[in-house]
């Protein structure tokens, strides 16, 4: 079985390895230059000095100029995040979807399932081996992307933000295994490669977006933060917070503006220019940045659960195919 799996999938595995190597050839130099600039410009030390408290006071935003400079230089590169988000899907499309569908399409399931091993063992071995092969690749990819993104995330975006959370930590590994299981299950349902790929594509996008937008914000109840508009306090860009909503609330607690206001004490004119009454306060609803790993574990758990369910259903469906 090991020999057969390798013989049947070696071409895709080689292409996958080549693709990852090409990606590494692009990412390693840009990542190094990003890390170098981050350190050499003093931005890293500056952000370190700010600590991780949500609110800072008494200082001006000393890192602001450096932060802008860094963003201007590297902002376009962060578009690569979209590419990173698509990578797990490719495993589902090119390993998962054809796993059963191609056999049925070519009739070769009647060859391989009538040899001396049961098709249950065939299915479990194939899923296990392909999962086992893609797992280390996914781990390398997740570690690499986490390293690559660290300066960008540290520079104010935070690791919990959409697009950043999804390509860092351990969730990319879970997405990859989920895509493989989804592709395999789609193949057992459609029994043709192209429809299976289409189902995998649609299913992956739907599940990922659905969980990301409907479930993820509720993994833990968000926290509220209110602070004076005139206290000289400001939000720490290094706090890593995932902000749901923010604005200015008046004394009755109504949201009157979606922007935040920082005025010197005893300057009613300043508040007037901002269009708010005295007694208003800045407010934000947010997830603290230190919940990153909790969120990662919760989301990983959900996707691994879905992976197990899809594998079970796929193996069950394989028994119905003749």
């Amino acid at each position: 079985m090991i020999w057969l799996t390798w013989r049947q999938h070696r071409k895709q595995l080689v292409y996958l390895a080549l693709g990852l190597a090409a990606l590494a050839a692009l990412m390693v130099p840009t990542g190094l230059s990003m890390h170098d600039t981050f350190q050499d410009s003093g931005l890293a030390d500056c952000l370190d000095a700010l600590g991780t408290d949500v609110l800072l006071s008494g200082q001006v935003d000393t890192c602001d100029a450096l932060r802008r400079q860094f963003t201007d230089e590297f902002n376009s590169l962060t578009m690569v995040a979209i590419l990173f988000m698509v990578l797990p899907l490719l495993v589902g499309l090119f390993f998962g979807a054809p796993l059963v569908a191609r056999e049925v399409e070519h009739g070769t399931h009647r060859l391989v399932w009538t040899q001396g091993i049961t098709r249950r063992r065939w299915a479990l071995t194939k899923l296990g081996l392909l999962g086992g092969l893609t797992l280390p690749l996914a781990v390398v990819y997740a570690l690499g992307v986490t390293w690559w993104f660290a300066p960008v995330a540290a520079n104010g975006t935070g690791r919990l933000a959409y697009g950043f959370f999804d390509v860092q930590g351990i969730v990319p590994v879970a997405y990859t295994l989920f895509a493989l299981a989804l592709g395999t299950f789609a193949g057992t349902a459609t029994r043709r490669v192209l429809p299976a790929m289409a189902v995998t594509l649609g299913g992956f996008a739907a599940v990922r977006l659905g969980i990301e937008t409907l479930l993820r914000p509720h993994y833990m109840p968000p926290e509220e933060l209110s602070y004076s508009t005139t206290g000289g306090q400001w939000l720490n860009p290094a706090a890593d917070s995932w902000i749901y909503e923010s604005g200015v609330r008046n004394a009755d607690g109504e949201l009157v503006s979606s922007g935040l206001i920082g005025c010197p004490p005893h300057d009613p004119l300043c508040l007037d220019r901002g269009g708010v009454e005295p007694g208003s306060s800045n407010w934000q609803l947010y997830q603290p940045g230190d919940r990153f790993w909790t969120f990662q574990f919760i989301e990983t758990g959900i996707f691994l659960g879905l992976t197990a369910l899809l594998c079970y259903l796929a193996v069950r469906r394989i028994r119905q195919i003749a």
Binding site: M1, I2, W3, L4, R7, V112, Q115, G116, I117
Partner: peptide
């Protein structure tokens, strides 16, 4: 070879 791997 495949047959050899799949059959006792």
């Amino acid at each position: 070879t495949m047959g050899a791997r799949l059959n006792r």
